[in-house]
Amino acid sequence: MELKQYKLNFLYQETFALTKRLFIQLQRRPSTLLAGILQPIIWLFLFGALFSKAPEGFLPGVDSYGNFLGAGLIVFTAFSGALNSGLPLMFDREFGFLNRLLVAPLASRLSIVLSSFFYITILSFVQSIVIMIVSFILGYGWPDFYGLGIVFATLILLVLFVTAISLCLAFVLPGHIELIALIFVINLPLLFASTALAPISFMPNWLGWLASVNPLTFAIEPIRIAYTQTMNLELVALQAPYGDLTCKSCISILFSLTVFSLIIIRPLLNRKLN
């Protein structure tokens, strides 16, 4: 029992040190944080302006396009941040810093992964909150207390899911060039093939199908409900070609994807870190 407590203390100490290192890097090179906040805000302004003269009732259930877009941009910000989370690890691998960690008698090498999760989750939350505040100032609404809880729970699931994949890629790919190229290829197509910018009813059939199986959509729709209606998990959030999905279903699917991704990356992390 005492031994377990020791191990837990050690795990806490090393995870805290690893996370602290990532935040010191962020503090001294804040450009990633700023770019991650600025990009969606610019999108919010530009897209909001682009559709500002759209006819009334153009989008069912929302007052304005900005009101519709907010959820998509919050998710996109968290998604982009999480997708990039493998980069620091990739650089550590390439420049040999990872060896410094691997030679140390870590209580568990899980701390290397945990620190990335903590860092990206906190970073995504900060970025998302800034975007939510800007959306509010622009008059695009603010979720109620229950809705706010759903927003953050959904973001945590999405961040865990995408961070797991990104860390996995950081171990599998040969270098940062390949990782950046893959992030570049994945990022925008996944955004456009989701309901971030337009509802499924606006899309051609094939794109509608793609959007309704896109994990981003399962995160966007419950958040959109939190923004546009009084939050209720039984409300229909997504009218997919294969049937209607409630908020609860969307979050359940996201939860399953997260658990599945964590299970499948475990053997790879074990092999690479042990």
Binding site: N9, Q13, F16, A17, I24, R28, L106, A107
Partner: peptide, 16 residues
């Protein structure tokens, strides 16, 4: 990005 002192502090935490 870290200073030498911060690096040593970080390393000592890895050694608990």
């Amino acid at each position: 990005i870290l200073t030498g002192r911060e690096l040593l502090d970080f390393q000592s935490d890895l050694y608990h």
